[in-house]
Each structure stands twice: as structure tokens, then as C-alpha cells.
Design a protein around this nucleic acid. Structure first.
Length: 399
DNA sequence: TCTGGGGTCCTAGGACCC
DNA sequence: TCTGGGGTCCTAGGACCC
């Protein structure tokens, strides 16, 4: 019988801040933005802050109203990533099969690990102890026969929780569960639950696959059909299909000046290009996202014959898409850009640089060299200057 | 109190081909 | 002459997750 653990750090960003700053301990810590930051939202609220009703995704301005005495912080992603690596290393010592889901949670397949660490609950206790001893953080753990159930179960007794579901108990557990606790059913689906008077897993269980598909759509219908029977969700399959990367920026005030918009796009484009060069993947499809002052959002994408070969080529493609999409005169709240259908180098070997001019080759080599320098000397960030689109690079010391 | 940023997956329609 | 059915690729938008 398979056995999985879902391990989830408690209020991760806020807990790291409380760990590093003893004066924050026992106090409401809110990571996401400073009180004056316009248009920022809460990433993580410590449990002390949650008492006031503060939660993730809430505008910082509202969090401030609910909890004026809170300690507001912008967050230090590098530090959180560092702690995350420490935690994942601890997980790795309990199972050779760790699937990281996000910065602060993972699945561990412990099917074969019990000879070494004892039964699942004993193993989970050891895991929690070691995470605490080695990283100073608490983790909530769920144990079940598949990943989906383990994920739901780990949320039952946060923070610092440990919950286990006995083998074969999945279906009964899911049938008794209020539909609001079904992982994977968000606000839109919950509206449909309400509209059709469905309040528990049992209500869903009584409906046929056909009816579920008619109400919720084919994919969500099938997902719910399987979920209330305690079956593993396909969403947690290891092999991933398409990949993408994106970067976006929300401005403190809406932009009306197209030069300012294009400068922002230029900046976003550099972020993307570094990441693309760094991961050594390739992409033929670029996308642009525009969110206007009224929050309406439009996007455009275009697939090219050849993958992006250089920064200036990426910017050219993004700029053309932006100019085609942007509705002149409207205030812009957010700009974003993305690369989709990423492929590994080997997947397209041979045709990669077909049609690439010697100029594009040179450009790419230059960019790869700059990437190397930036990696070696992270303090001296090299970036292209917006005003000089030719082959000039500008060095700025951002400190 | 106005609504972040980075992802994955799904849907629906159009173009095009057999 | 009054119109099929499937497959693939592409685009735009949306749901959902942390």
C-alpha cells in the first residue's frame, strides 16, 4: 500500500522573519508590503496577525486597517529560498522521492521508508522534530494513501499539525467533507456548489459523472468525480507538459505615457531574457499582458517560426505585440510579458539557429557573457540602457 | 480596502488538412 | 450544391494554486 506525506510550512515567510528577528516573535507579522505601499497585497500573515482577520492576497491597505499595530515587511525572497533549500534537504533525508510543490511544501513518498523510520506517524513526528531542530520552523504534515488526500489532510490541523488518514478511509473522508474544503475548487466552482445546493462531498458523490461534467465542465467534473471517491488527482502527476515563464509589473500609478510603458516593457524583457539564457530553454511563443486602470485585462500572443535568439529580438517581438494590443489613451496598471511552450535545447536541435544572422549570433554570445559576469558579481548588475537600443550596455550599481 | 507575481491547466473557436 | 468528422496548431481568456 502506498503512503504519502504532504508537508507544509506554517505561515512560511512570516515565520522566517520571526526566526531571524526575535523581537517579532509573538507579534502580528505581515509580509507583502509596507503600510504606504500602494497596490500591494499580503503574501503571508503570521498566526498572530490572522487573529485580526488578515490573510494572504488581502490588500495591504486593508490589513493595515484591521491590524494597525502589525509589523509590515516587504519580504526577502532570497532568504526564503535559502530556508526552503534547508527544509527540502531535511525532507530528502526521509525519502528518496520528494516532489516539491512550491517554495514551502512538498510531497514525500514514504512507501518504502518505513523500515528505516517506523510507521508513518512515527516517521512524521521525527520529520517535524528534525525540521524544527535544523531550521527553527514548524511544519504541518498530512499522511494518506495518495498525494491528494495527504494534501487535504495536512491542512486540517495547522499550525504545527499532524493528521493521518487510515488506508481505505479516503472515500468516507471525502464524502463527509464540506465542499469548501475540496482542494482545487476555487471561488467560481464554489459559486456553482451553492447554486446547485451542494454542501458536502456526499452531495457530489450522488451525482453521476455526466451530471458533474454538465454542471462543472468536462475536466472539473471528472476531477470532482474522482476527488469525492478519494482517488488521486491527476494534477499531481510528476511529468509536466508545457512550461512557460513570465514577468509582470503593477505600477503604483497608472501609466499614460507610451514611452514609460515601453521602458517598463524593456525592463521586464530583460528579466525574462536573463532567465531564458540561464535555464537554456527555448521558446517560439511570446505573450504580452496589459491590465488597464479599470482592471480589465487583455493579452496577446504570437508563435514564430524560430525561437527567440537574443534580447533585441525578444524586445522587438514583445513591442510589436504591445503596440498592436494597446488601446491608445487608456491608463495602464500592469504590464507583463511571457514565453510559452518552452522546449529544451535538444528538443529542437539542428533547427535552433536556422535563419539566424551572424549579427544575432554575436548578440547572443554577448548576452551569455554578460549573464556569466552577473552571476559572478551579482552586486554589479549589468543591464542594457533603454535609450540606447544598439549594442551598448550600461552598468549600474544598485545598492 | 480596491484587487501581487509566478506558475499550470482548461475551454472554446478558427484555420487548415485529410 | 447546400455541406461530415477528426486531428493539429494556434489564440484569448479564465480558473486555480501558493
Amino acid at each position: 500500500m502506498s503512503c504519502f506525506i504532504h508537508a507544509d510550512l506554517d505561515a512560511f515567510y512570516a515565520s522566517v522573519e520571526q526566526l531571524d528577528h526575535s523581537e517579532y516573535r509573538g507579534k502580528p507579522v505581515i509580509v507583502g508590503g509596507l503600510p504606504g505601499d500602494r497596490r500591494s497585497v499580503v503574501s503571508t500573515a503570521s498566526y498572530e496577525a490572522r487573529v485580526f482577520g488578515v490573510h494572504s492576497a488581502m490588500p495591504v491597505a486593508e490589513a493595515l486597517r484591521l491590524c494597525p499595530q502589525g509589523i509590515f515587511l516587504r519580504g526577502r525572497m532570497d532568504r526564503y529560498r535559502e530556508k526552503s533549500r534547508e527544509i527540502m534537504a531535511v525532507f530528502g533525508s526521509f525519502s528518496p522521492d520528494v516532489q516539491q510543490l512550491s517554495i514551502d511544501e512538498a510531497f514525500l513518498d514514504i512507501t518504502g521508508a518505513q523500515g528505516l523510520f517506523g510507521p508513518p506517524v512515527a516517521l512524521a513526528k521525527k520529520l517535524k522534530e528534525r525540521v524544527r531542530a535544523e531550521t527553527g520552523l514548524t511544519v504541518s504534515v498530512g499522511i494518506a494513501e495518495n498525494k491528494y488526500l495527504a494534501k487535504i489532510v495536512s491542512g486540517l490541523s495547522k499550525p504545527d499539525g499532524l493528521s493521518a488518514l487510515e488506508n481505505g478511509g479516503g472515500e468516507a473522508f471525502m464524502r463527509a467533507l464540506p465542499v469548501g474544503k475540496i482542494w482545487g475548487a476555487g471561488p467560481r466552482t464554489r459559486e456553482l456548489f451553492e447554486k446547485h445546493g451542494l454542501t458536502t462531498g456526499e452531495d457530489l458523490y450522488r451525482l453521476s459523472g455526466k451530471v458533474l461534467a454538465a454542471i462543472f465542465g468536462d475536466a472539473m467534473g471528472l476531477f470532482l468525480y474522482r476527488a469525492v471517491r478519494g482517488e488521486a488527482a491527476a494534477a499531481f502527476n510528476e511529468e509536466r507538459g508545457s512550461r512557460s515563464m513570465s514577468a509582470e509589473r503593477t505600477f503604483a500609478f497608472d501609466l499614460y505615457d507610451t514611452f514609460a510603458m515601453e521602458t517598463a516593457l524593456f525592463d521586464i524583457c530583460q528579466d525574462l531574457m536573463w532567465r531564458l539564457l540561464d535555464c537554456r530553454w527555448h521558446s517560439r511563443t511570446v505573450s504580452v499582458k496589459i491590465r488597464y486602470g479599470d482592471f480589465s485585462t487583455e493579452s496577446g500572443r504570437k508563435t514564430f517560426e524560430n525561437p527567440v535568439r537574443s534580447f533585441s529580438e525578444l524586445y522587438e517581438r514583445l513591442l510589436a505585440l504591445f503596440q498592436q494590443k494597446y488601446r491608445s489613451g487608456r491608463g495602464v496598471r500592469l504590464l507583463g510579458a511571457g514565453l510559452m511552450n518552452l522546449e529544451t535545447q535538444s528538443a529542437r536541435q539542428g533547427e535552433l539557429f536556422d535563419g539566424g544572422t551572424p549579427q544575432a549570433e554575436k548578440e547572443r554570445h554577448l548576452e551569455e557573457a554578460i549573464l556569466e559576469i552577473n552571476k559572478k558579481f551579482p552586486k554589479a548588475a549589468l543591464r542594457r540602457g533603454r535609450s540606447c537600443l544598439e549594442d551598448t550596455w550600461q552598468k549600474e550599481f544598485n545598492h
